[in-house]
């Protein structure tokens, strides 16, 4: 008769729902721009789709972009195999309040920007060094006391990561990031 199951915890290679065997295994990062009806519950519906179907959200920004047309733009950065990314787009597109979904990663070149605020505490040489590095990264000082700065920096997520890494030994105490906003390049 059947023996006890010997299946590794967390393994999904034994599941009927596993799709990887027939599709590419490469994890890709995609930035999706989702234009939605700005009405109560729309964001919850979009986020619920990601959690309910086990998709990743790396970053998410949302704001109303068309006040008269009541449309909001959700920019979501997600990772998955090519097949999962296709599913995410198809699942988003069929939500009733979603107007359109654009995959900025595959639909030609695009610009991505994120804004971050970083609080750095320190005095003496550390403080001077923090300010010098901020200058190199074109970060602005938006608040200052005798023992701290708050820097504002805009750029790609990688640039902000690099700046935060440099600030860490110089007294970084708190970071606030907006997540990515992105647009396709060119006239259209």
């Amino acid at each position: 008769m059947m023996s006890a199951l010997h299946i590794k915890r967390g393994s999904n290679s034994h599941s009927a729902y596993n799709l990887r065997s027939t599709f590419s295994d490469v994890q890709e990062k995609h930035t999706l721009a989702v234009v939605v009806e700005n009405e109560p519950g729309t964001l919850a519906r979009v986020i619920g789709l990601f959690s309910g179907r086990g998709y990743n959200i790396e970053s998410l920004t949302v704001a109303e972009v068309d006040h008269t047309g009541h449309q909001s733009r959700i920019t979501v950065v997600t990772t998955g195999t090519p097949q999962i990314i296709e599913q995410i787009k198809a699942q988003l597109e069929r939500l009733v309040p979603v107007h359109r979904v654009n995959d900025l990663t595959v639909e030609g070149p695009s610009v991505e920007r994120e804004l971050a605020l970083l609080k750095v505490e320190g005095t003496g040489d550390q403080r001077v060094e923090a300010l010098r590095l901020a200058d190199i990264f074109r970060a602005k000082v938006v608040d200052s006391t005798l023992a701290s700065f708050v820097f504002e920096i805009t750029g790609t997520p990688e640039k902000i990561d690099a700046f935060a890494d440099l600030m860490r030994p110089l007294g970084l105490v708190e970071v606030a990031r907006t997540g990515v906003a992105a647009l396709a390049r060119g006239a259209e």
Binding site: S21, Q87, A90, Q91
Partner: peptide, 29 residues
């Protein structure tokens, strides 16, 4: 319906008519 996915109808051309785009290529290419 499919049973084991990697052994599902291995030698066929598959056409899929569906009103829901997310049903297409969800499980079987």
């Amino acid at each position: 319906i499919t049973g084991r996915i990697d052994a599902f109808s291995p030698n066929s051309v598959k056409a899929h008519i569906d009103i829901d785009p997310s049903s297409i290529n969800k499980v079987i290419r």
